[in-house]
Each structure stands twice: as C-alpha cells, then as structure tokens.
C-alpha cells in the first residue's frame, strides 16, 4: 500500500521516539513558532535552526535522505505561490547578472521559502517519529475535544481502507473507459465519489454495529496512561533554550 510510509519510522527506538507525544508536540510547535517569527535577512539564525533540526534528525535515527526527499516534495507548491514576489514591485536591482527584481521582494521570497522548508522538515520529522495513535493519546490527555480526537482516529484507521477502495475503483475505470472530455471525466469522478459515499456510509453503519457488540458506550477508554518524566523535561528545556540562544545570536 502506497501510504505505508506514514508509519515507516515511527516504531524505531531513539531519544526522539521516546519523548512523550505532548512534549514532542510542544517542542516542535515552539520550533516552528521561532522559525516563522525570524525577521527577514537573519540568515545566521536560519542556518542555526537548520543545524538544530539536523541534530534532532541524527538523534532520531530516521534516514536523512528520507526527510530531505519528503520535505523537498512540497517545495514546488511553495514556489508556485511565492515565485512572483521579487517581481511584484518595481525592479531596483539585478539578480544573477541580468534578472530585474525588486530587492525587498527578493529578500521576502528567500525568507518565505526558507521558513516554509524548515517548518516542513520539522513536521516531517515529527510525524516520522510519532505513531499517530500516540499523538492522538497526547491530544486526548491535553483535553482536546473528544469528538475531534475520535474523528481523527477513525480517519487514521479508515483512510487506508478507503484509499485502497478508490485505487481499485480507479483502476477499473481506467481499464474500461478511455479518457473523455472534461465534463465526462467530471461526471465519472462524481459517480465514483457518490458510490464511495454510499459504501462508506454503509461501512460506518457496520463499524457502529461492530463497536456496539464490543460494548461501545460513547466513550473511548485507554488502558495505558501517558507519563511525562525527567527526561522529557530536560529535553524540552534544553531544546527551548537552544531556540532562544539562536534567536538572540541571529538577531545580533
């Protein structure tokens, strides 16, 4: 299944995997917060933020190549939105010899691409080192609305099943009908989605029957409890300390 990469690295044993999901969420959120609030032109700070994440990646034992590949796959979308920035104001300098650009726009462009990329790396490493159920347990412990946690856990479980179903239906469609004009294609896609909806609803009813027969009473009870230990506290403190130092250093 093509989505199996989601949990490819989440079962490794490393100092990053060991962290309580709540602590990890807080640490990575702080990281992104510090990155996106960096002022344009503080390239030293960006470099240090990158090194910090590199250190975390090495600690986590997740393949660096995997992280780079996954994070760079998103960059084209970032570029589509931001590539016009250097040209959206009157040109006042030349870039790379002969391209007329606006200096502030160019700086903003670099700034945005770097911020987006660093944040994407952080989220990639977060999701690679956290099994989704553990993340949900963390949300639950943080008293996140129960209904949203439940919906997320259903999504996590059934997205695979439904995507497989979509792939199957799509293969059947492709093998039977040549690609028609746009309206025809839209009609086919609509019919497939409608079919998928009916099947999904019926599946939901079956799941509910299954849950009822296993004693579901509207509550999801979890046996193992999360625990924030000394290690979590030391990690979070030193991580945030590193962020603050980078912020001060980078601003100098």
């Amino acid at each position: 299944m093509e989505l199996s990469y989601i949990d490819r690295y989440s079962e490794l044993d490393s100092p990053i995997h060991k962290l309580d999901p709540r602590v990890k969420t807080a640490a990575f959120f702080m990281y992104i917060l510090f990155v996106v609030t960096t002022l344009p032109g503080e390239y030293l700070a960006y470099a240090l933020f990158f090194l910090l994440m590199l250190f975390v990646i090495i600690l986590s034992k997740v393949s660096l190549l995997y992280i780079l590949k996954r994070s760079l796959a998103i960059i084209p979308f970032v570029l589509i939105i931001s590539v016009f920035l250097p040209f959206s104001a009157p040109a006042d300098r030349l870039f790379a010899g002969h391209i007329k650009v606006n200096n502030r726009g160019l700086e903003l462009f670099f700034n945005i691409v770097i911020k987006a990329w660093l944040s994407i790396i952080a989220v990639t490493i977060f999701s690679a080192t956290t099994a989704f159920p553990a993340f949900l347990k963390g949300l639950n412990a943080l008293h996140f609305p129960k209904i949203i946690v439940l919906m997320l856990s259903f999504m996590y479980r059934y997205s695979f099943v439904l995507l497989e179903e979509v792939t199957r239906i799509n293969t059947a469609r492709k093998s039977r009908s040549p690609v028609g004009n746009t309206v025809r294609q839209l009609k086919t896609v609509g019919n497939i989605i409608g079919l998928l909806f009916i099947r999904t609803y019926e599946r939901g009813e079956r799941i509910y029957q299954g849950m009822l027969s296993r004693g579901f009473n509207g509550e999801i009870n979890i046996i193992s409890k999360l625990h924030i230990g000394k290690y979590d506290c030391v990690f979070l403190t030193s991580f945030i300390l590193a962020l603050v130092i980078i912020k001060i250093k980078g601003a100098l």
């Binding site: 209904i147 059934y158 997205s159 979509v166 999904t200 509910y208």
Partner: peptide
C-alpha cells in the same frame, strides 16, 4: 460518532 469518523476518511479519499 463512527459515521462522522468514516466520513472524514471519505472526504480525505
């Protein structure tokens, strides 16, 4: 609850 849950997966798919 389960219906909303699988519908999330449905929209996602």
């Amino acid at each position: 609850i389960p219906v909303m849950g699988v519908m999330g997966a449905f929209v996602f798919a």
